[in-house]
Design a protein around this nucleic acid. Structure first.
Lengths: 134, 134
DNA sequence: CTGCATCCAATATGATACTG
DNA sequence: CAGTATCATATTGGATGCAG
């Protein structure tokens, strides 16, 4: 357990635990934000900047139009992205991260790097596990 | 886009993009790991160290026994946690993070802190959004 | 205590077709 | 192009009962 970061709720300085109400909210926010499509869209927007709907669909591997729309709406509601409609024909709608969205992307950056870095170890662990069992 | 971290796939140093196969794997890993229960269990284990099954259920707010078991199995398979069975009666089973799990917990730490820090902004954004619409 | 199996309800997601 | 609507399916999650 050496070197573990003092996580989430407990404040390293005060050593105090936040009140349960705040903890529940954090849990709720984590639940919403720790979502596959949210993370992947966040990543694409962080990398590409302002992006149109259709191109976003191409860049986010495997997302359906429905999930793309749905996730973008949620992210817009949570203040993570801004949706800009250009009144032209054919329609042109662009999405970009808000300041808040950028900070979340930065927070997730560590997870992306972790995933990229540790793929081999995960694959190995799975192979070992599956060998022991099924 | 100022100050954005060079995300995931593109290496800041080489400027090179990883091959598609790796990208697909990263996406898959993200999809598995960016899960509500995985994150919350990870957090509890990071904070409390080795923990028994039942207590884990109490510490992870709102998790059902089924999801707890299921998520722990996945995490075990992915090499994130170790499951130790003590041959006593009544049974005693403890879970703790592996080194790999600890590094993932560290990576997620930024997201926990982000959530805690930005709850107010998210609530405000939601209220504003809901006011504009529904 | 741990945790698997099963049934069931609720949600989430995907494919497809359609609209401004 | 950027969605919405609809239906079919998959996954999730809870409750319960049972076993080692």
């Amino acid at each position: 357990m050496t070197g573990l970061p003092a996580a989430k709720i407990t404040h390293p300085d005060t050593g105090q635990t936040a009140d349960p109400r705040v903890e529940a909210l954090v849990t709720e926010v984590i639940g919403r934000v720790a979502d596959k499509w949210t993370m992947l869209i966040l990543e694409v927007l962080a990398e590409h900047g302002e992006t149109r709907f259709t191109q976003l669909g191409r860049l986010v591997e495997g997302v359906s139009q429905k999930m793309l729309t749905q996730t973008l709406r949620q992210m817009e509601r949570d203040g993570l992205v801004v949706r800009t409609v250009h009144p032209v024909i054919p329609p042109k709608v662009e999405y970009r991260l808000t300041d808040l969205g950028v900070t979340l992307a930065e927070a997730f950056c560590g997870v992306w790097l972790w995933a990229e870095k540790n793929i081999d170890r995960i694959e190995a662990a799975r192979a070992a596990f599956d060998g022991r069992k099924g």
